[in-house]
């Protein structure tokens, strides 16, 4: 009964809530287990967009998905050679 009351007032997480949260994280992890082709395609499009604004060093570019405990981050390290004049001051 206590259990019920605490649930009614939302103090406790029901096991369905726990399942939902665990599932959400598992799916995030599973879906970021992406193929190298996916990352390569992403990288190429990033280069295309960024190159409109600055000159970048494509060889030194690093794009990865990093998984922390409860979130996933897209980490891109892109060395810039120089800014394009046209883009400055836009």
């Amino acid at each position: 009964m206590l259990d019920l009351i605490s649930r009614v007032f939302g103090r406790d997480h029901s096991s369905a809530d726990i399942a939902r949260e665990r599932l959400r994280l598992v799916l995030v992890h599973d879906r970021t287990n992406v193929s190298p082709q996916f990352l390569e395609a992403l990288k190429e499009e990033l280069i295309e967009v960024i190159s409109r604004y600055m000159e970048i060093e494509e060889e030194g570019m690093d794009v990865t998905l990093q998984t922390a405990e409860n979130q996933v981050a897209l980490v891109a390290n892109i060395p810039v050679r120089r800014m394009k004049r046209a883009a400055v001051g836009r």
Partner: peptide, 16 residues
């Protein structure tokens, strides 16, 4: 069990 909060809800499954 769904009503008691001890089973995943259909809407949550659909959303995920």
């Amino acid at each position: 069990m769904v009503a008691r909060g001890d089973m995943l809800e259909i809407d949550d499954m659909l959303e995920m």
